[in-house]
Design a protein around this nucleic acid. Sequence first.
RNA 1: GGACGUUUAGCUCAGCUGGUAGAGCUUUCGCUUGACGUGCGAAAGGUCAGCGGUUCAAGUCCGUUAACGUCCACCA
Length: 875
Amino acid sequence: MQKEMAKSYDPLEVEDRIYDFWIKGNYFHAEIDKNKKPYTIVMPPPNITGQLHMGHALDETFQDILIRFRRMQGYCALWLPGTDHAAIATEAKIVESMRKEGISKEDLGREKFLERAWEWKRVYGGRIVDQLKKLGSSCDWQRERFTMDEGCNKAVNEVFVRLYEKGLIYRGERIINWCPHCCTSISDAEVDFAEHDGHFWHLRYPLSDGSGFVSLATTRPETLLGDTAVAVHPDDERYKDLVGKTVILPLVNREIPIVADTYVEPEFGTGVVKITPAHDPNDFEVGLRHNLPIINVMDDNAIMNENAGKYKGLSRFEARKIIVKDLEDGGYLEKVEDIKHNVGSCYRCKTVVEPKISKQWFVKMKPLAEPAIDVVKTDKTKFVPERFDKIYFNWMNNIKDWCISRQLWWGHQIPAWHCADCGEITVSRTNPDSCAHCGSKNIKRDEDTLDTWFSSALWPFSTLGWPDKTPELDYFFPTNTLVTGYDIIFFWVARMIFSSVEQMGQTPFDTVFIHGILRDENGVKMSKSLGNGIDPLEIISEYGADALRFFLVTGNSPGNDMRFSSKRVESTRNFCNKIWNASRFVHMNIDDHDVKIELPKTLTTEDKWIVHTLNDVIKEVTENLDKFELGVAAAKLYDFMWDCYCDWYIELAKSRLMSEGESAQNARQVLVYVLDQTLRLLHPFMPFITEEIWQTLPHENEAEALLLAKFPEYKEENSYPDAANEMESVMEAIRAIRNRRAEMNVPPSKKAKVYIATNVKQIFENGKSFICKLGFASEVIVGDSFQIDGAVTIVTADAKMYIPMEELVDKQAELTRLNKELEATKKLLAQDEGKLNNAGFVSKAPQNVIETVKEQAAREREKIALIEAAIDALK
RNA sequence: GGACGUUUAGCUCAGCUGGUAGAGCUUUCGCUUGACGUGCGAAAGGUCAGCGGUUCAAGUCCGUUAACGUCCACCA
């Protein structure tokens, strides 16, 4: 490919074309290859209701980096994508869209509703997938799955039946969290607690015997209608005599007992609690212990029901107001206190959750949690960063049974059939036609569907074909890395682990890589309701996907949140452009020559320096990717590409490249070799631009695409520490010269002689041409020592340099500067001498550290002498 | 109530197993240096939140305090 490269990189022109190229080549597809080691990531399936947001972009970028890295390393790398049916969220959206048309779920009926839902999925489910592609995600799209597809449904039914048969799934009447808006039960994990301003209403319940009253307080006076007792602590001396007596429930005039229960905290409030078993989980427990009646005073929409008497038909909040008024009028209200207290709400719709007694399906968690704790304890699954295992343990250790049934239509319908004749339940993998207990044909399927997370919990193996014994399952499972945000550890990660341990007998992945969330420029969490979300697609169209990806990964450390910054995206965009132009320069130099991508036989010092430095970078990048320090790896590459390759090596090589013959040819080869290696290293981070450029390089037939090319490896033979040090000495001298010239405002066009006194003459003899070009010297004279009056003196570790620029030297300014430098150097020397005079340091510090300090001190002494000499000369 | 995180340059953040503090942006100065002004060269700017400890040596390890933040639990 010999086309002229544009002056600046245009991601819009490149990205879709390159993505098509990858897709056409089927390069993302992972076919079982027994000669390779598998590396598998299952994608956290985004909701079909969702639009791509920055959270996805972050998550996808990390996964794509890991997958591309392993693929290039020669693993059979499978990144399995898919989407989640998101039961509540999707159903809510569909109901909402129907409401606009004036129809309800019930109008439509279950079957028609589901048709509509599937149609909705067909239309919108693909949208998010298309958006993922814009990021460059190298997923195996042939293996794309959906949590409600046939295979997943089979897995769900299998697990349900197995757990049921083991007695780990049961159906029972419990108090659960009910969302009156979504009209379904939700699990404990789906309730968000937030502090709200509320009131503490202090009430008086008269004793039935007329001997007075008891005082108690409540935050929810409307539940009084369902009170069936009043409780005190059994050891509370104040109320000992009251236990066994009864009180008259205000407004309702029902006689209810005073019971003794240790649940009551005597120190809190008055030490008396009203007990409403139907509307409070703790009260429910008390009710069970004391055999109290349960009076439910609300319906499914949290509207007061017939048990609420005259309050029937009011919402719970309207009822509260009126009841408080009535209590006040009746003289039952002692006082009202303002308090802040936690209120639970539905994580989907934010409606205040109502505890409700209801017949639901549950998973018995204790037996599942124990082995799941064990696999993390024994490091079969590791959290990165490690601290997140505490969160996991904490949740798993305190786990309660999981309410899995939902009163929704969109989801996996529970594979249980109720018999109208014997009342028994038949649970079956396939649709039964009769009751397994009495044989009656009069059976009806349970209406409820399963919690979305029940199916996502099986994702790592259901997507590989389980419950069938597929070759994929055998080869790719257990998977390797799960990448996700910390906000989803309970919902998903924990459930995948216990499901897999139970069903597969092993952990689903060896590493859980946890990242933080992306916040807006002000550090505020991005949210739809605040409208502060930043659309990744807009950023991509403005700066390119590679720039966005590189931004997301740099400066991001595992587990920590990160702020969006358009300034920083701009700078990563500039980095893309830098890479582009470096490549353009390489092309200008190699296009008319026959250049292979391989190191020449002989290398100059600067060649050795860049090869050596690259070799180190390869090692560091690989090590950091291995331990999920993606940000560190990216930063190393940024520095290497920009500072080492562009700012130094290309500049150092220019004069050779302008020449003819072997030296020029060698330079071309090193130039293109290092570029090739760097593009490979950068490819996982910035796939589009690196592929685009790599395709134009003479890469022979190693691979059709960069994404399939070999990831660089550290090689001992590419290590040239001595040459690298020599080069650094020359570079240090050049930097020092530039520094002085800049301080004195000498323009590059004004060249000057440079005298270099050094005891490593050879190094500076070799570096002469570089010092001339990059240090703007008209001539470089290297010797043992010089005596030059009126010159600027510059001292580095290995050299004392004089630049005679009499007319430019302001003697006073130069003296001031030299004195300043003298002081600074003396200070350093004092520090080093302090160490060397410290008996503890000399006897206990490692030998190499002592040596380094000694060398430094020697240099500093030398430098001090030189500066003093320079000061004398000026005077 | 419990657990965890953060506190480093004006801003946003890196800094792995302890050995003389880094980047990007910003600011200032200089530059038609043969890929790039989305650039090049340079400068300024930090008692690494406070206190105490371990160590020859602490931004890094331990303890403690403070501020901010997150998660879990939840007292009616």
